[in-house]
């Protein structure tokens, strides 16, 4: 697989030369592969939001480089603007950015800025709304009369309507009830499957990403702690806990069982895997234990 985004020795310091100086990202390097769902996880304040704002050129690196399709995104002005459209960023609590009179017009804000034709815009709005499960009847309502979960999805649709090659979501499930979280996770997964778009999923909740992502980058205090598949990452339980993260319940139970000498793999991280492992133990493995 090709790398769609490469981050090379990225460093960013807020409030340089003031008493509030704080290095939010320090010498980070990693890559994002074409078509994957990448989980970016870290404790609050570990620099996740700062990092992703570098990926679509909202923040300029103090040192280091971000490459999109092999080219430095700050290469020239035109390219930076192109990257804005190719790398869609959904901020944390995106429902607070809604401003238009109708849902339809709000979702159309991005495509309109891309100077697309009316028909194309209309088509994209419908597509985006449907892909986050919004009913067509909602399109003519004011975004301010919707429920919190619906607003969140409208905001999400606003970015999806730009059909970005990379979709970055900053804590998209924050503040939602379990059902709302589940829905958002499914929409994201479907979107990735349908369009082949690359997804970067930012969160501080392991539970959220355990089931959706292909690869995980773990941040700790402005630096990368580890990178790997969910299996690899979740088997390093102790490091994760030290980084202030809560691990998925299934991984925790598997770890505890393994410690007691019961032969379950420490790489288990979903409830389904755990249930399978335990039922096989009961069925056959019990005699050996």
């Amino acid at each position: 697989m090709d790398n769609i985004i490469e981050v090379l020795n990225l460093t960013h310091t807020y409030g340089a030369d003031t008493p509030f100086e704080h290095t939010a990202i320090e010498d980070m390097s990693f890559e994002i592969k074409q078509g994957e769902i990448l989980g970016l996880i870290g404790h609050t304040g570990s620099g996740k939001s700062t990092l992703i704002q570098h990926l679509n050129g909202l923040l300029k690196p103090d040192s280091g480089m971000v490459k999109f399709c092999g080219r430095d995104i700050w290469d020239d002005k035109q390219f930076t603007r192109e990257v804005r459209f190719s790398v869609g960023l959904v901020f944390q609590y995106p429902e607070y950015q809604l401003f238009e009179e109708t849902v339809e017009r709000d979702i159309a804000f991005g495509p309109t800025n891309m100077k697309l034709s009316e028909d194309e815009i209309r088509e994209r709005v419908l597509y985006a709304a449907r892909s986050v499960g919004l009913d067509d009847s909602i399109l003519l309502k004011s975004p301010f009369e919707l429920s919190g979960g619906q607003k969140r999805r409208v905001a999400l649709a606003g970015v999806i309507a730009m059909k970005p090659k990379v979709l970055i979501l900053d804590e998209p499930t924050a503040g939602l009830d379990p059902e709302g979280r589940e829905e958002i996770l499914n929409y994201i997964k479907n979107y990735n499957k349908e369009t082949g778009a690359t997804i970067v999923f930012v969160t501080h909740s392991m539970e959220d990403i355990a089931r959706v992502v292909d690869r995980i980058v773990v941040l700790e205090k402005s630096k990368i702690l580890m990178t790997g598949t969910p299996k690899e990452v979740f088997s390093r339980t102790e490091d994760l806990i030290r980084a202030g993260l809560t691990i998925p319940v299934a991984a925790e139970i598997a770890g505890k069982l393994a410690k007691k000498g019961i032969p379950v793999s420490p790489a288990i991280y979903t409830i389904e895997q755990l249930a399978d492992a335990i039922s096989t133990l009961y069925a056959g493995g019990g005699k050996n234990a």
Binding site: L58, F85, F91, Q97, G110, N113, V159, M162
Partner: peptide, 10 residues
Amino acid sequence: IMSAQKSRGA
């Protein structure tokens, strides 16, 4: 908010 709208091409 400015960053968010910039992300949408504002």
